[in-house]
Nucleic acid binder design. Structure first.
Lengths: 246, 246
DNA sequence: GTAAAACATTGATCCAGATCAATGGTTGGA
DNA sequence: TCCAACCATTGATCTGGATCAATGTTTTAC
């Protein structure tokens, strides 16, 4: 007998150590499983939720990558994040019961949908669930604040270096190669997120390649010199490590 | 008999409608009061907490204004926010039990210190407290995301216009004039926050004054034309309203 | 009250990245 | 398989804001 529910539960998910069920006991995890809905896969380009829609659920990414955006009243769009498996979407929708941004699949994506009202009730009963939810929100606040520094203070090369290092760390955390990975997002998206023109993204990737710190083959990136990548534009006597977001 | 505790409680605080006790009943508010510590005033320039310190409490601003900053490993500092009365500090410290930024008083400041372990326990018992805490965190995530758009996409004039409008809204919310207020932060701080050089801040304020949309007298700002201020750099046929953070 | 320090403003010059243009490569649908 | 649309790269030129310099004003400490 094929039991789809037992195949796809928090208890046997490879992402437990970075997702909501972290630190839950097995019976507690079963309770959380009881409120989670597994979604059908989203295809590349599909919206998971849209800015302005009523807020109902948060979503944990199970597979694939997602970008989030905000649009101002002039229609100007800013990418606010790229989300990996184990990361939560929709945390910015609670205050007005409206999603304050849009989430879009960058490739085929599977999600766990967690209706927020039920999550809220369960969080009263399970202290570790409540705390982990708050930690995830706190992490996101901190990530966005560090991103403010990147946007306000760093050169194009530093921005790209920082971006690639962050991707590298998250691929590594998921068990993939830290030094060779495929970008799911376009150069236009990278530029949008980092506040750079697409031409500057392209140019700067080429420049980093000419310096020998990375190798670029279309969407494939190979990091050849991790220290070199984090030390971009550093003066010779300065420490070589950039703060890394996420 | 002077009873300091009864003078300073959530029940009779003018900031209830924008702070944690929002939506609590009177007995619930008494419970919250029981875990809050009132701090002695902080003087201008004093740190409330520092990046890297162990996370113990969040703080609600009772009077005065506070700025928060993050510093990267190169010592580069980015101001991440200006906080008004009724707003919460320290929400970015939960994930690592370390404050991920520093909070500094911009003038004489009074705070309510809320030890987080106690708040967490109480939030299990008081659903509305738990929800309001989450709403505050969600609001902050959203604010930072909108700030990313400002930093990445807008001109110096638009940045200043947006900044002044946001200040205006928060002064108004506190019962002060929406059109005439005194800046507590220096031009250098404004520039740091918006990713601009201090000279550009000064120049742009002068330019806005020459256009007649504001009047600048040192730290005093008078908004003469609110629509003009939000319509900076707009093409003639475009709507005139910028998205406003916070 | 005074002097030093800090802050704000203005002018001149410079430059990192944006914009515009053109070309080559990749992807998706028929 | 072919073609249109989209994406990525490269070159040339432009520009908004940074940097440097100088001066005026305000605040702070003694």
């Amino acid at each position: 007998m094929n039991a789809p529910m037992s195949i796809q539960s928090c208890g046997n998910c490879g992402l437990v150590s970075m997702c909501l069920p972290l630190a839950l006991t097995q019976p507690e995890m079963t309770q959380l499983d009881g409120i989670i809905k597994k979604s059908a896969p989203y295809r590349r380009g599909e919206s998971i939720f849209r800015q302005g829609d009523a807020f109902t659920s948060i979503y944990a990414v199970r597979a694939g990558m997602v970008k989030t955006t905000v649009v101002n009243t002039l229609g100007e769009e800013q990418i606010t994040g790229f989300y990996f498996p184990g990361e939560l979407l929709g945390l910015n929708g609670l205050h007005e019961n409206v999603y304050s941004g849009t989430a879009i699949a960058l490739e085929t994506v599977s999600l766990c949908e967690i209706p927020f009202l039920k999550l809220d009730e369960l969080s009263a009963l399970l202290p570790e669930l409540r705390r982990q939810l708050m930690r995830q929100m706190s992490q996101e606040i901190s990530d966005e604040q560090n991103m403010m520094l990147v946007l306000a203070k760093t050169s194009a090369e530093e921005k790209l270096g920082n971006f690639l290092i962050r991707l590298s760390l998250r691929f590594k955390r998921l068990g993939f190669s830290a030094t060779q990975f495929r970008l799911t997002m376009s150069r236009v998206d990278i530029g949008n997120y980092l506040g750079l023109a697409v031409e500057t993204v392209s140019r700067t990737l080429t420049k980093l390649q000419q310096r020998g710190v990375i190798k670029v083959a279309g969407k494939e990136i190979t990091i050849l010199d991790m220290d070199g990548l984090s030390g971009l534009n550093r003066k010779a006597d300065e420490p070589a490590k950039l703060v890394v977001v996420g």
